Amino acid sequence: MTPRLPRPLMRAVLAVLTLAGPAQALAEAPWVQAAGAFLEREAAGLGESVSVTLHPPNARFPACQDPRPFLPDGARPPLGRVSVGVECGGAERRTRYLQAEVEAIGRYPVTARRIATGERLSRHDLAMRRGALNRLPRQALRDPEAVVGQVARRPLAADRPFQAHQLRPPHLVDRGDRVTLEARGDGFRVTRQAEALGAGGRGERIRVRLDDRRIIEGRVIGPRRLAVDG
């Protein structure tokens, strides 16, 4: 004789089985599969291998004609916990959203030793590690070329990923330098001398004092050279 489950346990089992059917059907829906394929394409190239895990909603949805997946936050490559939208065509135009986890395995640079504030980084200061890129800090730098030549804004512990906010370009202008300002236009180029009131690397904006004591702002374009925009 087959033993019977206690009534409360039987109700719990039936509830799980009842929910599993719609959830499985939703996971197999064409628009959900289209979202998964879209994320795999968008994440291709982020690492040596990429895997996508979708988390379909529990609610039932009507059919989605001509599904067109997209990333709600624009062109940012999907990595880690992300949201993916799906626009549905047909008579009823709807937009649905799914949560997903995108994991990429790849290589990234870490500090090969303790780095002091103000040190300029060379290749000897980097070591390469292999792991889950989606578990790195959000501002982690994965390209060693983005690290070499930069200067540490703060002390960095050994064997830690580099983050963008921890580094800055090397100063091409220091406070107190005599600098050359350049202004360009259609068919003309004007230069004049000034005193730097701050320090900055390429592309950074600093204030300078002209010989007539006026203070303006310029963009660093080279060693002791700034451009005046507009």
Rank of each mutant, 00 (worst) to 15 (best):
L197I: 01
E87C: 01
E195S: 04
R214K: 13
E87K: 04
Q163N: 11
R154S: 14
A132C: 12
A59N: 08
E42A: 10
R168A: 13
L181C: 14
Q193Y: 06
L167G: 01
M10F: 08
L19E: 10
A34R: 03
L126E: 06
G176Q: 01
D66L: 10
L5K: 02
V86C: 01
A91R: 12
T117Q: 15
M128E: 14
G149N: 09
R192C: 15
R114L: 14
F162T: 06
R213G: 08
Q166D: 15
I216Q: 05
Q193L: 14
A12V: 05
R205I: 08
A37H: 14
E40D: 14
P62I: 03
E48C: 03
R224H: 10
E103G: 08
A196N: 01
R138S: 13
A116M: 14
L17S: 10
A29D: 09
F188L: 10
R202V: 13
R81G: 13
A127S: 15
P137V: 09
R7N: 07
V84F: 01
R184N: 13
A158R: 15
D125V: 12
F162E: 03
D177N: 13
H165N: 09
T18H: 11
G21N: 04
M128F: 12
R142P: 00
A199K: 01
A158N: 12
P8A: 10
R107Q: 13
R214G: 12
A152R: 05
C88T: 05
F61Y: 11
R41I: 14
H171Q: 11
A158W: 07
E182M: 10
A43E: 02
F70V: 05
R178W: 05
R153W: 13
G47Q: 02
A91H: 07
N58A: 14
G230I: 06
I215P: 02
G47D: 07
D125M: 10
M128D: 12
N134G: 15
